[in-house]
Design a protein around this nucleic acid. Structure first.
Lengths: 208, 208
DNA sequence: CCCAAAAGTGAACAGCGCTTACACAAGATA
DNA sequence: TATCTTGTGTAAGCGCTGTTCACTTTTGGG
């Protein structure tokens, strides 16, 4: 963790966020201490509190980055002002959503656990308040896509919130399984993603 | 936490387990400290280490109780020497499994998080070693039941491990959703359970 | 150039997990 | 019954943590 370059005054905040992000990436966030962080960054332990009220605040901000990353990934699949025009397109997007979500859980496992654990709860509460973010919670993304799916005639039955919940929980459960199953190879992961997608479609009454 | 009765010599181990179990039930296990526990039990802090190698060991043992509870609940649904004889029966059992698992997550949320979080990982590893327990991991229970379901002609297609994974992850995801969704009432929970069950059956090719 | 605001210092506080040296109780053995 | 061994609890201490606070340094706008 040898931070060679001495920080210039005012750079500490960003440096701390970087440091914590790095700890998440290396799976050591759970044992990270602010004091050690300060030492590694060549700064006194008290300095941290000029930028974060407490440790929780730092973790909160780091976790928020995870949601922003996921939001960006979802946005790439389903741009704001580009509604799907064909059933194939929206089907493809729904598949991509599952792929993206499960991929995120695999790629950024530690972050994913923070996002859907204790710390993330506060982030999710905060996101609901912010209209900029609230449409990009995973649940809402699935809901919007399923609505399009329905509008384009993918399913004749009325779309209920229970349907959305079911599809979302299937994807979330698959992500959890994929992430925790140490012995799953790429093909098995791909199969989980496809199964989840296909069976979600069938559950909605799609005849493909 | 006023422990009034003074512990008799030799009772500390059980008292510590009780204390930790209580903390789990009250959702304070994450902030529980061994020192405070010792104080509350009227004992010196070093005494704890006569009974547990470290804090992790205590938590491990407590978490194991959760798996034993879940095992007992599963066992009640599907006794060891009582194979299902009809399709209705095995269907009923599969529904009960989903019900039980999701019910457990709702009823013992903190325990459930321990079981499927970092601490539980060690427990699950340990369970695989023990033949007495390994057949009662949630995954294995689902697998055994699906096998019976297949044997009794519930589905014509061959049963793959991917099918089991899918069904199990749907139940697990539903449990996670039910537990995290603060605003779900009893009816909605019941619907999640039914949906998960019915759609799992359909995913297996059951025509009901 | 000055000075208030922002940023960083370092000592201190209380609490943590854990270790070690010691004291004592109780059951087994002679 | 006297001794020995083993298990249990004590007290003090180590090194760490998050957090606070009085203090100094730096810096950029009037």
């Amino acid at each position: 963790m040898g931070q060679v370059i001495k920080l210039k005054r005012g750079e500490l905040r960003e440096a701390l966020l970087d440091y914590a992000m790095n700890a998440v990436e290396h799976g050591t966030i759970e044992v990270m201490s602010l004091r050690q962080a300060a030492r590694d960054l060549g700064v006194s332990s008290g300095a941290v509190y000029r930028h974060f009220a407490d440790k929780e605040s730092l973790l909160h901000e780091v976790t928020m980055e995870g949601f922003l990353d996921l939001k960006a990934r979802f946005r790439a699949i389903r741009p704001e002002d580009d509604p799907a025009t064909s059933l194939e397109q929206v089907m493809g997007r729904l598949h991509q959503i599952a792929e993206t979500y499960i991929g995120f859980a695999l790629e950024r496992t530690a972050m994913w656990h923070m996002m859907f654990g204790r710390i993330g709860a506060a982030c999710r509460d905060q996101m609901i308040q912010d209209p900029e973010m609230s449409h990009y919670t995973p649940f809402d993304v699935v809901m919007a896509c399923l609505q399009e799916f329905h509008n384009l005639g993918g399913t004749s039955k009325e779309l209920t919130e229970a349907d959305v919940r079911f599809c979302w929980s299937a994807v979330h459960g698959a992500a959890d399984l994929a992430q925790s199953g140490a012995r799953l190879d790429a093909d098995q992961i791909e199969q989980i993603i496809s199964d989840t997608h296909i069976r979600n479609m069938r559950a909605l009454g799609y005849k493909g």
